[in-house]
Amino acid sequence: MSVSALPIGERIRYWREKKHRKQAAVAGLCGITEEYLSQIERGLKIPSLPVLQALAAELGVPVSALLGEKRNELLAENAYVADSVVTALMGYGPAGSAQPVTLAELRERVESVWRIWQTSPKRFTEAASVLPALIVDTENAIRAHRLSSDSAARRDVLRTAADLYFMLRSYCRRAGRVELSLMVADRALRAAEDADDPIRLSAAQWNLGHVLLADGEYEGAKQVALRGIEGLRALPRDADTIAMAGALELVAVVADARRKRWGQARERLSSNATPRAQQVGEGNTMWTVFGPTNVELHAVSIEMEAGEAAEALRVADQIDTSHLPSIERRFTFLLEVARCYDLRREDPAVLVHLLDLEQMAPEDLARNPLARNMVTRLRRRVRATYRRQVDALAERLSSV
């Protein structure tokens, strides 16, 4: 197979090894962590354009050598946020309603887009169809109530705005636009602060933590999560407070795992997150889906990150995700199971799980770099018995 046909991560590794460069040295000179470069080379992350340019310069090759001739995965990954959503976020989208919409209507529309995002197999397409007008109307409502003497109405608008930005954080992140995800996470934080809503403020920190995780800023993500937990200590220990603290603990767990601190991640999960999950049971406080099942999913993630595929699969076999309210969490779990089989090179099991993921959420599968890389690897090594199915899956994904 020619170099140009390889995924971006494998092309970067090819050129780095051809130049006899150490991973740590290249990462340091490009201003990224060694772990982040490792994840890029393994297909777990898609580099931003500035990172790609820095890598090309450091390796002494043109950017085109890293992108390849057949497909520009970087641009494809960054094209999933609808243009109309971007223009609305930047403030030059379509005109909003002539009169500010009522708070009740705005709240219902935000709740509706969250239902789409957490339950629809075509959530990217369906969310993109309603988000531009909703963003504009929400921003108009904020402006209309900025100097209002009705403090209760103003706080309600800001709470609703924060909830919309939470959803947009996930939408932009899952579409590969980390810079937009960071922008809306910051808007959510400011809205929650202005609303003087402690639970939403902790939810905003949870969202920011996930953006930092996506950007490879693991220590920053952990510190944001720990500050969020500390801020909750003064609040009454009701179900929402406990659940938010637990969700923030899971951010810290992932940060530890990504930094290869497997023991710390396992200890934090069992000592801090598990007791909180047992206290509150299954729930969806601030759309975090925190509860015992989510904690178990993180146990699988730790073992998968650690390369302990057999242990991850053993834990996964005991988990039932059918009751979870979020298609995203169910998808992520099944994808990690597929990745474990991929690590073991059990190709029939990888294919079965990828086909299940396609049925569950075809748009998510097509937009996920880890899934696309698994399909690419399958096409290279799969036995003739399964090649037709793998090729057909790849063709379907390219058309989504």
Rank of each mutant, 00 (worst) to 15 (best):
V178G: 10
A203V: 12
A214Y: 01
N207C: 12
M167L: 14
G216V: 02
F166R: 13
G176F: 09
I199L: 15
V211H: 00
E219T: 12
D163G: 04
Q205K: 11
S170P: 00
A195K: 03
R200Y: 00
A204F: 02
A195P: 15
M183A: 14
L180P: 10
L180Q: 10
L168S: 05
L213C: 10
L213H: 06
G209M: 07
L164S: 08
G216S: 05
L208Q: 12
S170F: 13
M183W: 00
Y165F: 14
V178A: 14
E217M: 03
D196Y: 01
A195I: 05
G216R: 02
M183F: 13
G176A: 12
V184T: 12
L180C: 10
A188W: 00
G216T: 01
G220P: 03
R177F: 11
Y171F: 13
V178I: 14
A188M: 12
A195Y: 06
G216C: 05
A191L: 09
R173P: 02
L168Q: 05
P198E: 14
S202I: 08
V178S: 13
C172K: 07
R190T: 04
R169C: 11
A214Q: 07
A192W: 03
D194H: 11
S170V: 12
L180S: 07
G216D: 02
N207M: 06
A204G: 05
I199C: 08
W206H: 15
L213G: 03
Q205L: 14
D197Y: 08
A175P: 03
M183I: 03
A192Q: 07
Y218K: 02
R174N: 12
A175L: 03
A185I: 11
D194Q: 14
F166N: 09
V211W: 00
P198I: 14
D194V: 01
R174M: 07
C172T: 15
C172S: 09
A188Q: 08
L164N: 10
L189N: 06
R177Q: 12
R187D: 03
